[in-house]
Design a protein around this nucleic acid. Structure first.
Lengths: 245, 245
DNA sequence: CGCCTTCTTGATGCGGTTCAAGTAAAGTGG
DNA sequence: CCACTTTACTTGAACCGCATCAAGAAGGCG
């Protein structure tokens, strides 16, 4: 684990996606930061059915939450972007019900699980922020249920790509040409959408052929956003002022 | 809206599912309770894409959260039981991303949205409890993604029935014969599992014929729990000490 | 260079949808 | 109290979206 880096020089915080925070609260967060952790692609950040007493903020890189059935079938629950909290969800009570794996090399801010209580006690406003984050992530998982339950394969893929593009942009990862990194393999996409890799491949190609997306060299660019959203049967939704711990 | 009922006489709180709370916190909750609301089956408790400034605790009866696609396809996200909070999830930030509908006649405790902040400020422990509830609900939605994405139709139904039975029992709704109320129609089950009503019907009958479940007259009883769990490819999970607002 | 992972394409088959009817039970109004 | 409607459930038959199996092509990487 590297030496802690001061939160005031956090590269994420200045982004418009994130809510400004008072110097006092920032200092309080920084004070409780245990350290910084770098992990390579594929590393397990959290393991299914294991207890952990730490809490992470994803500072750089991508990850994903997943669950597996007893016979090995895997379902990706959602994708994690810079700024996301890791370890809040299942573990609060007992062993984690899901695993978290790094999609790229990642860099994590590390907190002790108990810091949560300290944050709440010293700065009740932070509790509201955590509630916000938690509600926001649940909303994303809600969208996943909707996709997997009721959208066709093509619709699911369109919805996922729109979602990833939006979140990656929000994390400041878009180039001036509008493209964002896309570190997911087609197997990841398939596991996120409840599809087989083969069919995922075919539907991706259909979107490519119609020019709705460009996807090559690990980068994703969207053609016409509103058409894609129509394909996905998407309803528009805003989400400003995200808190960042 | 009926006149408020004191929380000390809340019929839910004595149940073993719920965490004991200090008299002081209880009084603080009771003080912020705006009133009590009774709604009939089918009533809309929350409407998709509308803003609400109230928060509810489901005191009696069942409800469900759902989302719809722009062309009307509906997906049920999860089922709400007595003790569940309503209105936390999407609405915190803006308009609710999902709707909530009563599955039976329901009785709700009503709070103002801002009470959340007051609770956090006056009793930071409550913030932890809300975080617990939020994490717990996300875990349930996680399970839904897993089911819908990776389980076969039969497995999904088995998993849902086990889950409903467990939660209904926890809410004190089980009879001495082990049966619990089951107010869902087959259409509800289908919409919760991403299936068509027709196929839902056939799989339910298969479970009935093999004696794994009894389902009649609006009540559900499970045959052999561990077999059912094996059918569902279920991993066991405990969940004690649920907080209740 | 050879191995491994990812992506691609074709062929075949099944799990689940859709369409269509019919039954049963519960509410509704005269 | 009985026709009438409505909602829930059931069953059969045809079809299709997607999974599965199989094999090949195209990169990374030690």
């Amino acid at each position: 684990m590297d030496a802690p880096i001061p939160c005031r020089s956090c590269p994420l915080r200045p982004l418009p996606t994130f809510k400004p925070m008072s110097a006092e609260i920032l200092a309080s967060i920084a004070a409780r930061k245990i350290g910084q952790l770098r992990l390579p692609v594929g590393a397990a950040i959290l393991t299914e059915r294991e207890t952990g007493d730490r809490l992470f903020t994803l500072m750089a890189g991508w990850a994903f939450r997943f669950m597996t059935l007893s016979d090995g079938r895997r379902q990706i629950l959602n994708i994690l972007f810079p700024g996301d909290l890791i370890g809040l969800q299942g573990e609060l009570m007992a062993a984690s019900s899901h695993g978290v794996e790094a999609l790229t090399d990642v860099s994590l801010c590390v907190f002790a699980r108990d810091s949560l209580w300290a944050f709440y006690r010293d700065h009740p406003e932070l509790a509201l922020d955590v509630t916000w984050l938690s509600a926001h992530e649940e909303r994303i998982v809600d969208e996943a249920v909707l996709s997997v339950g009721r959208r066709t394969a093509l619709e699911r893929i369109a919805a996922l790509l729109v979602h990833v593009h939006k979140r990656a942009s929000g994390a400041g990862l878009a180039r001036r040409d509008g493209s964002v990194p896309f570190p997911l393999t087609q197997i990841h996409v398939a596991d996120a959408l409840g599809l087989s890799p083969v069919h995922t491949n075919r539907m991706l190609q259909r979107l490519r052929r119609t020019g709705l997306i460009r996807l090559e060299g690990g980068r994703l660019a969207l053609g016409d956003l509103s058409t894609l959203q129509r394909v996905a049967r998407y309803w528009e939704q805003p989400a400003p002022g995200r808190p960042l711990l």
